[in-house]
Design a protein around this nucleic acid. Sequence first.
DNA 1: AAATTACTGTTATTTTAATAACAATGTTAA
DNA 2: TTAACATTGTTATTAAAATAACAGTAATTT
Lengths: 207, 207
Amino acid sequence: MTRKLPDKTVERLSQYRRALLNTLSGGKHHIFSHEIANLLHITAVQVRRDIMLIGYTGTLRQGYDVNELIDIIGKIIDTREGQKVAVIGIGNLGRAIMGYFSGKRTRLNIVAAFDSNPDKTDKIYAGVPCYHSDKMMEIIKNESISIAVISVPGEFAEKVAEDLTMAGIKGILNFSPKPLNMPAHVYLQEFDMLTMLEKVAYFVKKS
Amino acid sequence: MTRKLPDKTVERLSQYRRALLNTLSGGKHHIFSHEIANLLHITAVQVRRDIMLIGYTGTLRQGYDVNELIDIIGKIIDTREGQKVAVIGIGNLGRAIMGYFSGKRTRLNIVAAFDSNPDKTDKIYAGVPCYHSDKMMEIIKNESISIAVISVPGEFAEKVAEDLTMAGIKGILNFSPKPLNMPAHVYLQEFDMLTMLEKVAYFVKKS
DNA sequence: AAATTACTGTTATTTTAATAACAATGTTAA
DNA sequence: TTAACATTGTTATTAAAATAACAGTAATTT
Ligand SMILES: NC(=O)c1ccc[n+]([C@@H]2O[C@H](COP(=O)([O-])OP(=O)(O)OC[C@H]3O[C@@H](n4cnc5c(N)ncnc54)[C@H](O)[C@@H]3O)[C@@H](O)[C@H]2O)c1
Ligand SMILES: NC(=O)c1ccc[n+]([C@@H]2O[C@H](COP(=O)([O-])OP(=O)(O)OC[C@H]3O[C@@H](n4cnc5c(N)ncnc54)[C@H](O)[C@@H]3O)[C@@H](O)[C@H]2O)c1
């Protein structure tokens, strides 16, 4: 298939798709690059360039076919069977995430949650069972869960990540403030809210 | 003071500081660039370059003085008086964020929360009062709150952002999936979890 | 005393991302 | 029919970020 795309292009493709699904439900079937750009508050060139990179081409006078573009992006981002996701650590953030995803229809299915606190396990959150973390490695392996969201306190994040790696996880989204060190074959995305808020504060101060 | 620093450097400074505070509480008072690098899983050159940019210099044989470095970073990121932060939308995510920040001692003080649902207002969350959003503009202005965290559903985000701008907000951290369009004097940081998870999925698929 | 080592600080280079420039082309207007 | 227009697709340029190269230097070893 397509060559590996730039990081930022992949991010935008995800956003294009969401915006396009909206457009579609508004009954609009064709869209110009500058219209997509306006939805995301970026430039039309950026949009056209991204679309060029995925090898889709629009028509000169009508722009892009919304359905086709949604499909193509799907072919790039999604896998046919979908990917299974687990959430580790069902505290305040973990529960918020579970609730958030439960509505969305997507090829990313949260199929299991794990927590070390027995008060929180053997229950259903947003339709998804929460197991004790003792069973994590086994279930990840048996269910071939490929992606994990880490929302445990920082001091446990490293151990959890190691276990996940041993269980064969392929990608991690880490919400804990502890920077993780993964082998090259595990894709890692860190997500540090405190850092982002401090960054906002810095640029507010500087402006 | 210092010239405006690169975006990514600011992010790392926030992380350096957190790591250094840890180091300090472990009783360690000097640290080498490669040690900082190991804590964050980045390269030592990157660390030295960032530190160069903020104009601090270590000593040849001992490396950096942990206390001094923490102080310098504080001078760059923090303001003397601290900055006031409001959280808009006290749903699952909003409440998680309130809880998360309440522990942290930082110069960023969450001083108010707002929600449009009367069932959620006129209560205290994590020590912070939640007002009805009717009062938002007035309170933001009167309290000179400079930073807002938006955690309302996407369809309301734009309106909220407009009101915030009119009330004189200076920086926004947006968790809603709706991309916002702010005037140049309002610093905007978007934070889209679905996009990040789809990105992980893409690179897992490609690897 | 000279060579080696283990660091820092800085400049140079490379890589990645964004922006600009523009050729190609069907459509509308004159 | 011809000129102007609006749009795409692509190449060229610029900007931002990361990485590499290396000079300088105090301490240590030979
Ligand atoms: N709450 C937020 O809005 C927020 C924001 C940014 C980052 N974070 C980070 O996300 C993480 C979770 O935050 P939170 O507010 O939900 O904390 P929390 O304390 O509410 O939840 C943590 C959960 O992890 C569980 N846990 C602990 N060790 C575990 C292990 N080894 N395996 C499985 N589960 C384990 C705990 O039982 C608890 O349920 C923390 O690292 C926090 O720093 C949270
Ligand atoms: N829950 C998550 O983990 C998560 C993850 C990523 C993104 N988000 C995004 O964050 C936002 C909030 O998510 P959530 O799960 O907390 O949703 P939620 O429905 O639990 O909470 C939304 C809150 O916003 C309030 N609200 C609505 N309109 C408002 C207005 N005009 N002014 C003030 N408050 C208003 C509602 O009363 C409600 O309390 C959404 O945009 C969601 O897409 C959530």
